Amino acid sequence: LRKIPTGKHSTVTEFILAGLTEKPELQLPLFLFSLGIYVVTVMGNLGMITLSGLSSHLHDPMYYFLSSLSFVDLCYSTVITPKMLVNFVTEKNIISYHECMAQLYFFLVFGIAECHMLAVMAYDHCVAICNPLLYNVTMSYQVCSWLAVEVYMLGLIGVTVHTGCMLRVIFCKAKIINHYICDLFPLLELSCSSTYANELVLFCFSGLDIFGPGLTILGSCISITASILQICSTAGRSKAFSTCCSHISAVPIFYGALAIMYLQPSNVRSMDQGKVSSVFYTIIVPMLNPLFYSLRNKDVKVALNKIIEKRLFCFHRDL
């Protein structure tokens, strides 16, 4: 390990990512599995962004937030998965200190943004079902734009605090990160300086970023359920329920896995267990979101069919 005298700064110039598993027989299956998930994630989220932009039927707040979520998921997955795939095919997955801090920065900014974007989408669903007559006024273009900006601002504020605290940590012991990405807790385990302030900040901000959106989503679900029960027609109930059903399906997986990783006390936290739970919110959920929100949505199916029919018509006309 090459070290440089930097006073109060970290003397470690590079890390080794331990990866998801050390068993050689699992490397190839996990590589193919992760690659397949990443391809589906990119195609699904990029397809949702493209479809929202091309189809005039999807130019309303619900699909504006859905395409924003797809953008966050696409960036979020791209920050994590390619480096993870490298770990499966190399003997030592080396990452420099600056690359590690950069990965941590973008991983956190998109992760925090996703937490709050899901809450904004839940609020949008709540307004659409509970106050349908005032929906266009309540969720105007200006309001939607401000909500999207606030989501990214919260992400930037959180990541600035976390990364700023991490840059103060001195790494001078081991350099093997027991994870497949540069995450906060695995990095703090390598510190030879006090991490009390880092863990306190991490616990407080994690609570805000998980419990805050979680309570917003829970309140929205309660309001939506109450409104659905007041709908007289069976068709109306079915349509209202299908609108929020996808959201309810995706949220517990994401926030549950986050809570296991970031809200457990340090004396009971297991990094091996944390690696398994982190697979869900870093890899699985970005793939599932477009499947939950898009393929089960009637408007998205109609818009996709119209675009396919239009392209086929143009193709046959050219022939």
Results as ranks from 00 to 15, higher is better:
220 S>L: 05
196 Y>H: 11
198 N>S: 15
87 N>P: 14
103 Q>A: 08
27 Q>C: 14
130 C>W: 04
56 S>T: 09
215 L>Y: 12
308 I>W: 08
253 I>N: 04
45 N>H: 04
68 S>C: 13
4 I>C: 10
42 V>W: 02
113 A>P: 07
238 S>C: 10
296 R>T: 14
292 F>E: 09
151 V>P: 05
221 C>T: 08
158 G>Y: 01
231 I>G: 04
262 Y>A: 01
224 I>Q: 05
171 F>V: 13
1 L>T: 12
87 N>D: 15
159 V>A: 00
17 L>Y: 07
262 Y>C: 07
162 H>S: 01
4 I>K: 12
120 V>R: 03
266 S>Y: 15
122 A>V: 04
203 F>E: 08
96 S>Q: 11
155 G>H: 05
112 I>E: 03
122 A>P: 08
206 S>L: 02
235 A>N: 13
248 I>D: 07
66 L>H: 07
168 R>E: 14
97 Y>P: 05
292 F>H: 11
50 T>L: 03
166 M>V: 10
75 C>R: 02
42 V>A: 00
298 K>F: 13
149 V>W: 09
142 Q>E: 09
308 I>K: 03
59 H>D: 13
107 F>W: 13
38 Y>V: 06
295 L>Q: 01
180 Y>T: 11
28 L>F: 15
25 E>C: 09
55 S>L: 05
70 S>I: 14
298 K>Y: 09
130 C>I: 02
140 S>D: 01
85 L>P: 11
250 A>V: 06
108 L>P: 02
113 A>F: 01
192 C>A: 03
102 A>H: 08
272 D>E: 11
101 M>S: 10
17 L>C: 08
42 V>M: 00
72 V>P: 08
256 G>C: 09
254 F>C: 06
7 G>Q: 02
289 N>E: 08
209 D>P: 05
99 E>K: 11
189 E>W: 09
129 I>S: 02
97 Y>M: 15
275 K>C: 14
177 I>T: 08
24 P>K: 03
205 F>E: 05
16 I>N: 02
75 C>F: 09
295 L>D: 01
163 T>M: 06
108 L>R: 02
228 I>E: 00
283 I>T: 07
176 I>S: 08
40 V>S: 04
197 A>C: 12
105 Y>H: 12
144 C>M: 07
60 D>V: 14
28 L>G: 07
248 I>E: 06
136 N>F: 03
233 S>N: 01
